[in-house]
Design a protein around this nucleic acid. Structure first.
Length: 648
RNA sequence: GCUGUCUUAGCUCAGUUGGUAGAGCACAUCCUUGGUAAGGAUGAGGUCGUCGGUUCAAAUCCGAUAGACAGCUCCA
């Protein structure tokens, strides 16, 4: 007798060992039909797994993350089968489930294009209709290798070789004429993959190595029901409408010009205004947090970057003025970071422990010659301005100061309304990194990472770990944000650096009169203003909170008889620092309202004879619509109050 | 940098198998003083991203190049 503890706590007994699928059938055929995989003692397992001992038994449907992944993984096999049927010479690489769907990488003579997807979808439809049973089998490593070689799948042979060392059988899945090396789990039949769509085809490197072979990747998504697929595709369409790269241009926050160059956006008056508001606010808040404002040069001689190590690591990514390799002549480079410039402030004279912590802040413009394929709207650019800062510390100050940096960043992200959707990543080095990216000794890295881990754990911060995501000089805490396409970038970073101080000969005299080397925290509070603006536009769909709106109030006169009254109201608004305009064009009030609404102005006043006479304002908000006529002071007071609150 | 797609008026897009370009919005002028999401009329605006090639003839076909988009790789 085998005892299975179900999700609801009840116990189901089975007479003898049997596949999980049979157990699920026993619970109910309805459940079996929607089952994707099972969790046995918390482990995700295939429905084919034989149950031969007591365990907890949980059935995972498409509603669960694990169920989705199994479903999408099978969908990727259906895709691969279709590709093999239509293009027998194509070689298979890998085809995992990912967030929101799946992809499969293929090695093909000619890369797939959007036109090929239609034919592939049709073939997939056939495979689903054929209701092909999916079977799993294992082979000893040498037999597996021989079979894959016979099948002519070099990438699979390579993957097989990797698994061979473990001494276990190599797992395969077969569905009719298609067999794939795969650890699973998978659905029981192709029939379940009812609604699917191939969404994109792109290039992707084998094993993520840009020097390696480039494969042709097909992305797709799939659902049990057509209605779910429709819903997903619709949601993706809706998300695209918030794309800052589109909306930001439409609303005239920024633009780009071919002959200025890639990654060099022009901030139009609205975008420039928002960034100015953010900058002034950040500088003021940082001052209150004890930061000393600095202003350092935008370029330096090559020698500075040689000391810092950036010359060796990032020469290709710098804008160099002069011949970088001609040592007989002076050579400058635009700065790609602020660190070594700001260190000079500390180095200006001999320092004592009494000077520490020294918190340096700067609104710093940086230049990085990104690869041509990297630029994206305001998110990835070649010139950007960051709320940069470096803290120079005694080692015992590290924890408290790091905590303050994090608190400050969280406060700022919360105030602008981005914190809710941020995630935290502890970016560590990879001791096995083949690119030889990291400097310093293993001991130094272990020390810095242990220090950061301790701090993060003390704070109880939830974070993921990013191996090989560290800077060359130290580990980072990255605050990540996703754009409307789901692509993640770093919004804010706080880094511990135990290496650069030594390179620059930074030291302080400690209490005991001995010279010691400080620790350094590299940090930003609100990140790059361009990127932050991009995320604000996407998060708010262009309707920025009142305090960040470039134009906060627009006054719409109904007739020019109200001009004088409008002017009076405008002056009252301006006296309190509200950014307001009067739309005095000779247009109908309906037309002006439509314009104000499309421009996403937070509040607008409709002002005609009635209001001028009664001393009122007809208030309209972009979100609540017509709010009716109210006494002028009441309306103004409401706006002043909301503006001061920085409410979202 | 790599793979794929794309580039026609300020914006969104039409433009049949090659025969030197159209619409809507926006803009300008005039009329309209109009009350909660588009009042009317007229007009201006394009060497079809750029350069080169094929052709009697190129927005249309070919090549190069610059931008844009998605993904990969990179991101101090």
């Amino acid at each position: 007798m085998i005892k299975l503890t179900l999700k609801d706590g009840s116990v189901k007994e089975i007479e003898a060992a049997m596949p999980a699928a049979e157990v699920v059938k026993g619970i109910g055929m309805g459940l079996y039909k929607s089952a994707c995989c099972v969790k046995l003692d918390g482990q995700v397992c295939d429905l084919r797994t034989t149950i031969n001992k007591d365990c907890t038994f949980e059935v995972m449907t498409f509603d669960s993350e694990e169920g989705k992944r199994t479903f999408w993984h099978t969908a990727s096999h259906v895709l691969a089968q279709a590709v093999k049927r239509l293009y027998p010479n194509v070689k298979l690489a890998i085809g995992p489930a990912i967030e929101g769907g799946f992809y499969y990488d293929f090695d093909t003579e000619k890369a797939f294009t959007a036109d090929d997807l239609t034919a592939l979808e049709a073939e997939m439809k056939k495979i689903v209709k054929e209701d092909i049973a999916i079977e799993q089998f294992g082979l000893p490593a040498d037999e597996a290798k021989a079979m894959l070689e016979k099948m002519g799948e070099p990438y699979k042979v390579e993957l097989c070789a990797e698994h061979a060392g473990k001494g276990e059988d190599i797992s395969f899945y077969r569905q009719g004429d298609f067999t794939d090396l795969c650890a699973g789990p998978h659905l029981m039949s192709t029939a379940a993959v009812k609604a699917f769509k191939l969404t994109a085809c792109t290039g992707a490197y084998w094993r993520g190595d840009a020097k390696g072979k480039q494969l042709s990747r097909i992305y797709g998504t799939a659902y049990p029901k057509a209605s779910q697929l429709e819903e997903h595709l619709k949601a993706a369409e809706e998300a695209k409408k918030r794309d800052h790269n589109k909306l930001g241009r439409e609303l005239e926050y920024f633009t780009t010009v071919d002959y200025i160059g890639q990654g060099l956006p022009i901030l139009l008056p609205k975008g420039a205004r928002v960034i100015q508001i953010l900058q002034r606010w950040v500088e003021d808040v940082e001052q209150k947090h004890g930061y000393l404002l600095t202003k350092t040069p935008y370029m330096a001689k090559r020698e500075l970057y040689k000391i810092s190590g950036h010359w060796d690591h990032y020469l290709d990514g710098m804008f160099v003025l002069g011949d970088p390799h001609d040592e007989t002549k002076e050579c400058f480079a635009l700065r790609p970071m602020t660190c070594p410039f700001q260190y000079q402030v500390f180095l200006n004279r001999a320092r004592s422990y009494r000077d520490l912590p020294m918190r340096l802040g700067e609104t710093s413009t940086l230049f990085r010659n990104e690869d041509s394929g990297e630029m994206h709207g305001l998110i990835r650019v070649r010139q950007f301005t960051i709320s940069e800062g470096h803290l120079i510390l005694r080692p015992e100050q590290l924890e408290e100061e790091f905590k303050d940096c994090l608190e400050l960043a969280k406060y700022m992200l919360d105030t602008v309304g981005l914190l809710d959707k941020c995630t935290f990543r502890f970016s560590q080095w990879d001791p096995a990194n083949p690119k030889n990216k990291y400097e310093g000794t293993a001991e130094q890295w272990e020390e810095a990472q242990a220090a950061m881990k301790k701090i993060l754990d003390h704070l109880g911060l939830e974070y993921t770990i990013g191996i090989d995501e560290a800077a060359f000089y130290g580990p980072k805490l990255d605050i990540q944000y996703k754009n409307v396409y789901g692509k993640e970038d770093t919004l804010v970073t706080i880094q511990i650096d135990m290496l650069l101080a030594e390179k620059f000969g930074m030291e302080y005299t400690d209490v005991d009169g001995k010279k010691r080397m400080p620790y350094i925290i590299h940090r930003t509070s609100l990140g790059c203003y361009e990127r932050t603006l991009a995320y604000l536009i996407e998060t708010y769909a262009g309707a920025l909170p009142l305090w960040l709106s470039p134009e906060q109030v627009r006054i719409l006169p109904v007739t020019d008889r109200a001009a004088e009254y409008c002017q009076k109201v405008l002056e009252k608004l301006e006296a309190r620092g509200i950014r307001a305009t009067v739309d005095s064009r000779k247009e109908g009030v309906g037309y002006k309202i439509r314009q104000a609404q499309l421009d996403k102005i937070p509040y607008f006043f409709i002002v005609g004879d009635k209001e001028a006479e009664e001393g009122t304002l007809s208030l309209r908000s972009r979100s609540e619509g017509d709010l009716g006529a109210k006494p002028m002071d009441e309306v103004l007071e409401r706006i002043f109050r909301e503006n001061d609150e920085k409410v979202r």
